[in-house]
């Protein structure tokens, strides 16, 4: 399960259209995707967010990612990569290999995110120019994730006690036509200095689908520069019996001006792949040759 921060959580959680700072990790409620522990009438924001976290999620996932960043001047940058992810029961493991552009091709990142929050996560980065995989820190959360509008903290899961939740609207509709989702609109405000520092947010609002127990939109008030960040999950499809967003859009704005936009599109997503196993993620193997 996506219990913690880290890059590893990033794509597992992004695939599941979740993983944002205000989603709690320490809820005790165990619910399945079909066995929702909260009703659509629930007015307990904390219980709702806990249920979101506790959903079953796809495992042994393979995917391809297309990532496009558009800056204020309209200039674009594109990245493509492959990703493999697995939940072992004690940790989440993920391998990402960049395929393009040519200057980053072959750059690979192996992450092991331990469920035990007392342990530092393990990450190794392979840079083709160095011909070497080196251990790196996953400690800082405030930096941009690969130059996108998302930060590592966007993919962080923090303790419920770090936030104060409230329901802003009991029912709000997101999307149009058949794709419309009936949602709770929940506001999360960090109440500990740690959460404030890690996220850089004054507060955020999460639109949670009542039928899928997935966040479908997130809006964050960014303290630095009084910016707003909008994150939207689209193209929800079932993969391995679980709902997953296949498109994520993140937009940073200030005073109604778009500063930058990131679009992440997933392709060839599959779950329960037998070859995505422990051996695949062995950090002592030459995993960067995958």
């Amino acid at each position: 399960m996506c219990k913690k921060h880290s890059l590893l959580s990033a794509f597992v959680c992004l695939l599941a259209a979740e993983g944002f700072a205000q989603v709690p990790s320490d809820g005790a409620v165990q619910v399945g995707q079909a066995a929702v522990a909260v009703s659509a009438d629930s007015t307990d924001a904390s219980a709702i967010m806990t249920a979101v976290e506790s959903r079953d999620k796809a495992n042994r996932v393979k995917s391809k990612l297309l990532l496009k960043i558009v800056d204020k001047g309209g200039r674009t940058r594109a990245r493509t990569m492959r990703s493999w992810a697995m939940e072992t029961g004690e940790s989440e493991r993920q391998l990402m290999v960049f395929d393009s552009p040519a200057d980053v091709q072959g750059t690979s990142l192996l992450s092991i995110d331990h469920d035990d929050s007392k342990k530092d996560d393990d990450q190794w980065l392979y840079l083709p120019s160095l011909k070497k995989s080196t251990r790196i820190s996953s400690g800082d959360k405030s930096g941009s994730f690969m130059g996108t509008d998302l930060t590592y903290s966007d993919m962080t899961r923090s303790a419920t006690s770090d936030y104060e939740y409230k329901i802003v609207k009991q029912t709000v509709s997101v999307g149009k036509g058949a794709a419309a989702e009936e949602c709770w609109l929940i506001e999360a405000r960090p109440i500990t200095q740690k959460a404030k520092d890690e996220t850089g947010y004054v507060k955020s609002r999460v639109w949670v689908s009542k039928s899928k127990l997935l966040p479908v939109q997130v809006k964050a008030w960014v303290r630095e520069g009084r910016k707003l960040k909008y994150i939207k999950f689209d193209d929800l499809r079932m993969v391995g019996g679980h709902w997953m967003a296949h498109k994520i859009s993140a937009r940073t704005t200030r005073a109604r001006e778009v500063l930058s936009t990131t679009i992440i599109q997933f392709a060839d997503v599959s779950a329960d792949n037998a070859d995505v196993n422990d051996g695949f993620f062995d950090q002592n193997a030459q995993w960067w040759t995958r």
């Binding site: 391809k64 493509t80 809006k219 704005t253 599109q265 392709a267």
Partner: peptide, 20 residues
């Protein structure tokens, strides 16, 4: 920023997976 949601959540173009 309380009144900018439509602007912020405006649709983005789909990317073509065949670009991969």
């Amino acid at each position: 920023g309380d009144d900018q949601d439509e602007f912020g959540f405006a649709d983005t173009p789909d990317l073509d997976p065949s670009d991969q």
